[in-house]
Amino acid sequence: MKREITLNINDRDETLVVDDAETLLEVLRDRLKLWSVRESCGVGACGSCTVLLDGRPVSACLLLAVRSTGRDITTLEGLGDGQLLHPIQEAFVSERALQCAYCTPGFVLSVKALLDEIPNPSDDEIREYLSGNLCRCAGYADILRAVHLAREKISRAPVKPE
């Protein structure tokens, strides 16, 4: 069945008609052309299609679009101000924590959620939190270092007035 829904994506409301069977991944990629969201395994096992749903990382390939209404959806396109790199992205660049980088958008968003939830994570907490994201180039050691650098960058950043 088709129905009209409104999704809040990267702080913008998008109203569109979707089929009940359409996944959030299909809507984000095929309809809205948010190419940072990537299909890889289709079964929620790799984290390539990670987006933030009310700040929590989810696999967009397992979530139906119609079940995503009324939530804040963030893709990598919505991270930062669109001009400068976010400190997490800066850290991934400085630590060379990307190679083919197909997994990178998912990792960056998972790290965002991690640092929002645990501002000062231990290695174990990082490993635990990021274990749903696969990097086949196996740059895990670099990613681990990038998380620590991102944490430092964020903690040094001036606090924005509320």
């Binding site: 079964v43 096992a45 990082i126 696969l134 990097c135 895990y140 050691a141 681990l144």
Partner: peptide
């Protein structure tokens, strides 16, 4: 033949120190 059944290394499988 799917990533639910075929295991690849995650960040947790990485040795503690290398």
């Amino acid at each position: 033949g799917s990533l639910l059944d075929y295991q690849v290394a995650t960040i947790k499988d990485m040795p503690r120190s290398f």
